[in-house]
Every structure is written in structure tokens, then in C-alpha cells.
């Protein structure tokens, strides 16, 4: 058991926690706009955390750079995807959920 493995383990655990959080948010929140929040934030951070953990775990090599590339790609693509979905819902005029309304399951 090396210090590197411990750091990697902690980062992976944090990532898993955020993934579970994202899933919970996706199931609990009331409408499509608020569901975008856990998807864009928790999944991005969870994914990046697990990937960085694996980078620490594997040590430096070309594969580490590949993982870094995936991290950068994940950051750009998840933000853009969240925006694209939100925009399509907004342009289509889906009403947003206000306080006091019934939850839309």
C-alpha cells in the first residue's frame, strides 16, 4: 500500500460519491431545467475526480496524457451538452417549475 494508492483511492471514493449524488439529483429534482444542474456539475466533477485518481494511480506515462485529454474533453462536452439540452427545452417553451407547484415526476 503506497501513498499514491491511498490518494487514488480517496479521489475515486469522492468521484463515486458525486456520481451517486448526481443520480439522486436526477431522480429527485422537479423539472428538466433543475435536473440539468446535477448532470452538468456532479457528473463532471465525479468523472474528473475518478480520472485524476486513476492518473495518480498509474503514474506518469503516455496513458496519463490520454486521461488528461479525456478530462479536458469531459469538461467541454458536458457543459456544452447541458447547454444544448437546456436550450432545446427553453426554445420549445417548456414551463419552468416554480415554488409551490406539484412535482412533475
Amino acid at each position: 500500500m503506497m501513498a499514491r494508492d491511498i490518494i487514488a483511492g480517496i479521489l475515486c471514493a469522492v468521484g463515486t460519491f458525486f456520481f451517486i449524488l448526481g443520480t439522486t439529483g436526477l431522480l429527485r429534482l422537479p423539472d428538466v431545467f433543475s435536473r440539468l444542474h446535477p448532470s452538468t456539475k456532479c457528473d463532471t466533477l465525479g468523472g474528473c475526480s475518478v480520472l485524476i485518481g486513476l492518473m495518480v494511480h498509474s503514474g506518469f506515462s503516455f496513458d496519463t496524457l490520454k486521461l488528461l485529454l479525456i478530462v479536458a474533453f469531459l469538461l467541454v462536452s458536458s457543459a456544452t451538452c447541458g447547454h444544448a439540452i437546456g436550450r432545446s427545452a427553453f426554445v420549445k417553451g417548456i414551463p419552468i417549475w416554480k415554488k409551490g407547484l406539484e412535482r412533475e415526476e
Binding site: F73, V76, S77, T80, H83, A84, R87, V91
Partner: peptide, 15 residues
């Protein structure tokens, strides 16, 4: 008539 989003366009130009 719905113009495409600037954000998506720029992201695609990059990717």
C-alpha cells in the same frame, strides 16, 4: 429560423 447556438458552434469548431 432558429439560429444555432454560439456556444455549440464554437465547441464544435474546436472539437
Amino acid at each position: 429560423e432558429i439560429a444555432s447556438s454560439v456556444i455549440v458552434r464554437i465547441a464544435i469548431i474546436f472539437l
